[in-house]
């Protein structure tokens, strides 16, 4: 055990704590709270009922006030634990509240109304997960539609990206032709033309092609990614040219060389690009916001932002939907984090 502690608290100097050790641990533990805390808080909140969400101070875990059906009252009444003037405690139901005085009844004797100062009572609460926050958006809202739209856009765009980018990367890495450098420069130059610079004319082109309010209008402008071409090309350059010569001697057509030799050998880079593309397309916001104006076409991100921008925000649903929107990305993070971090460290792409 002490060996473990020694390992965990490995320090700079042999003797005592150097100030940098203290800074390190403060920074790391603080980072842990600041980075994970908000997301954890979001997930916790997403299980709270609307009443619990409106509470201040909030509770860490989702609680609901217990209710009891009392004879003579239509609605279930909230239960409170009341401290009587004599010091004894009793569980009473609240009928109504006027200022700081509450009119309460004992559930067993619904006729006797007792007046209690609200400072002398605490609600009877139990932990309860409001799973309806999750189930209702699926039935009452277009949430399933949004989910489907997002999945469709993400999967289709990623597949097209992989095919189109890998073909271009193959041409740019394994063929000698006039204008190759020019094509490469042209593609790299696109990095300088982000969406925010061309959104007005792009919108008109997409409209002219009849792709306004069409998921393809979201997909197509995103698929010819310069970063994708770039990382695939860099990877393909490491594949020996002799393999291609060998395949040509083996009577393979150029298309066969592409999909039977090059694609399988580029698999690791394709995997990295696929992961990135999924995250990119799943998270896309501004462009879908511009292209999609019909509710039934919204992607999750657009739907969420529109609902959260309404005057009367239904936070309990928004929070739950936000959690659902996070799930795929969190899964990617948990299982493929290593892939991504090495991908970024190696190529500097995002």
């Amino acid at each position: 055990m002490s060996r473990l502690a020694e390992f965990i608290f490995r320090r700079r100097g042999r003797n005592g704590w150097h100030w940098t050790d203290i800074v390190t641990w403060l920074w790391l533990v603080g980072g842990l709270f600041i980075m994970f805390g908000p997301a954890v808080w979001l997930v916790g909140s997403s299980f709270k009922s609307p009443a619990a969400l409106a509470e201040f101070p909030p509770t860490i875990m989702p609680y609901v006030t217990q209710k009891a059906t009392v004879e003579g009252y239509d609605k279930p009444l909230d239960l409170y634990e009341v401290t009587r003037p004599d010091g004894s405690k009793a569980v009473l139901a609240e009928v109504r509240r006027i200022g700081i005085v509450a009119q309460m009844v004992a559930p067993e004797k619904p006729t006797d109304i007792v007046k209690v100062n609200i400072a002398e009572r605490t609600p009877v609460r139990t932990m309860s997960f409001a799973t309806t926050n999750y189930t209702e958006p699926f039935t009452h809202f277009d949430f399933v539609r949004y989910l489907w739209n997002s999945v469709f856009v993400t999967v289709t765009a990623t597949l097209i990206t992989l095919i189109v980018n890998s073909m271009a990367a193959f041409a740019l890495s394994k063929y000698e032709f006039r204008g190759r450098t020019f094509a490469m420069l042209l593609i790299l130059a696109t990095l300088m033309v982000p969406l925010s610079v061309i959104m007005v004319p792009l919108y008109s082109i997409v409209s002219a092609l009849g792709l306004f309010n069409n998921l393809w209008g979201v997909i197509l402008p995103t698929v010819a990614t310069p970063t994708g071409v770039f990382i695939l090309r860099q990877y393909m350059l490491t594949i020996p040219d002799e393999l291609i010569d060998a395949a040509r001697m083996d009577k393979a057509s150029e298309w066969q060389i592409y999909w039977r030799i090059i694609l399988p050998l580029t698999a690791p880079a394709l995997a990295v690009l696929a992961i990135f593309s999924v995250v990119w397309r799943w998270n896309d916001f501004l462009w879908p916001l511009i292209v999609l104006s019909r509710k039934e076409l919204y992607t999750l991100q657009v739907g969420l932002s529109i609902y959260s921008g309404e005057l009367n925000v239904q936070w309990h649903f928004i929070l739950a939907m936000t959690v659902v929107t996070m799930i795929p990305v969190v899964l990617v993070f948990i299982f493929l984090q290593r892939f991504i971090t090495t991908g970024i460290a190696g190529t500097g792409l995002k």
Binding site: E242, L243, D245, A246, M249
Partner: peptide, 12 residues
């Protein structure tokens, strides 16, 4: 038919 210096066997 050709035999290459690096053999150029398809690694996959």
């Amino acid at each position: 038919a050709m035999v290459f210096q690096s053999y150029a066997l398809y690694p996959h």
